[in-house]
Computed example of a mutant assay.
Amino acid sequence: MADDKTNRGPQDRSRINFSEDYEVRYWTDKFGVSKSQLEEAVREVGSSTEAVEAELRRATLSGSKE
Rank of each mutant, 00 (worst) to 15 (best):
S48F: 13
E50L: 07
E39N: 03
Q11A: 09
D3F: 14
M1A: 15
K35P: 01
V52E: 03
E53C: 05
V24M: 00
N17T: 08
A54M: 05
V33C: 12
R15S: 04
V42S: 09
T6Q: 13
K65Q: 10
A59M: 03
Q11D: 08
E50T: 11
G9A: 10
G9D: 08
R15E: 11
T28S: 14
N7V: 14
S14Y: 08
E23I: 10
Q37S: 06
G9F: 15
G46Q: 13
V42I: 09
E39P: 00
V52C: 05
T60Q: 07
P10L: 09
V52D: 05
K35A: 13
R43H: 12
E66S: 09
V52G: 02
R8N: 15
A54S: 09
R58W: 09
E55T: 10
F31A: 10
N17A: 08
G32K: 00
E39A: 10
L61F: 12
E44L: 11
S19H: 03
A51E: 14
T49A: 04
V45W: 13
R57I: 04
E55K: 15
T49M: 11
K5T: 05
G32D: 01
T49W: 15
L38D: 07
F31N: 09
R58F: 13
V24I: 07
Y26H: 13
S36C: 03
E50V: 06
E55G: 05
G46M: 13
A59T: 04
L38H: 05
T28E: 09
S64W: 12
D29C: 09
E66W: 08
N7P: 02
P10S: 06
Y26G: 00
A54I: 03
E50M: 07
A59C: 08
S19N: 02
R58D: 06
V33P: 13
Y22A: 05
M1H: 13
S34D: 06
Y26A: 01
E66G: 12
R25Y: 15
R8E: 12
K65R: 10
W27G: 00
R58T: 06
S19F: 00
E50K: 10
G63S: 04
A2C: 10
S14W: 07
D21W: 10
R13I: 10
Y22E: 04
A2M: 12
K65P: 01
F18T: 00
S62H: 06
K35G: 05
G46W: 15
F18L: 00
E20A: 15
G63R: 04
R13L: 13
R57C: 00
T6I: 06
V45Q: 03
E23A: 11
E53I: 00
M1R: 14
E23H: 15
K30E: 09
K5H: 04
R13V: 11
G46E: 13
S36H: 11
